[in-house]
Design a protein around this nucleic acid. Structure first.
Length: 239
DNA sequence: CTCCCGCGGT
DNA sequence: ACCGCCGGAG
């Protein structure tokens, strides 16, 4: 849930999920339609499908014991694997998210990315305190070492930091208004609200033209978020 | 407009 | 290395 999503926005969704699905087995057995209904509104709906698939593997095979095993699960990349390994398993690994990337880049005075970022972050880990360190750097990045208008005067490490200039903004994302992403999100919300629906019904509900709805349904089907249950009738999987 | 405790397919 | 994916806050 925290992947590319502000922590404050995640909290209510997380609480609902943990109440409904306290264990991997619980979410593994749920209909995908129900999981998507609980997820819809948080963003990046594919994460819900991948989370459930990961839970099914975990319910069947148990938890992967290390970072490599975690990263082999769907939807789990370098950051999430490291975060689980560190915060849940106590492994001494850096959680190289966007905050650590920015904080360490400014600290060292040059832009860090990819393998080099991971290597530098590993080198800075204080012995035996990876979890505290990672948490502290993420909070420093979110609260003080912000992307724009960082509060260097309040920063506890200002004296040995190169300064905020080296921050490089991520590539811009393209308009959301009128995008296929917006249409896909609207179609999922429409199917959550209406249940099984035709193209015409979804077009009316979402206030999108049939061309956009049709494209959204096709791509959503390809990714396992929608099924065509009968000819021309679409629904969320398992509904 | 930008950013958010990224990931996966190309 | 690049791009699409969701949605809300500032």
């Amino acid at each position: 849930m925290l992947q590319q999503t502000q922590a404050a926005r995640v909290v209510p969704f997380f609480e609902r999920f943990m109440a409904r699905y306290p264990t991997p087995a619980a979410i593994a057995q749920a209909p995908a339609a129900e999981v998507l209904a609980l997820w819809s509104g948080l963003g990046y709906n594919r994460r819900a499908i991948r989370l459930q698939e990961a839970a099914r593997r975990i319910a069947g095979n148990g938890w992967p014991p290390d970072t490599a095993g975690l990263q082999a699960l769907p939807g789990i990349g370098p950051y999430t694997a490291a975060a689980v390994a560190c915060f849940a398993y106590g492994e001494q690994v850096p959680t190289t998210d966007t905050n650590l990337r920015r904080v360490l880049s400014r600290w060292l005075g040059r832009p860090l990315r990819g393998p080099e970022l991971a290597e530098v972050a590993r080198g800075e880990l204080p012995s035996g305190r990876a979890a505290d360190w990672n948490q502290a750097l993420m909070d420093l990045g979110a609260g003080i070492c912000r992307p724009v208008e960082p509060s260097c005067g309040e920063c506890p490490v200002e004296d040995w930091c190169a300064g905020p200039e080296t921050y490089v903004a991520p590539p811009s994302q393209g308009r959301f208004r009128g995008s296929r992403r917006e249409a896909r999100g609207a179609v999922v919300r429409g199917l959550v609200a209406r249940g099984a629906s035709t193209l015409t019904e979804l077009s009316a509900t979402t206030d999108l033209d049939k061309r956009q709805v049709s494209t959204a349904l096709k791509t959503l089907s390809d990714e396992g978020m929608v099924e065509e249950s009968a000819d021309g009738v679409f629904r969320l999987p398992g509904s």
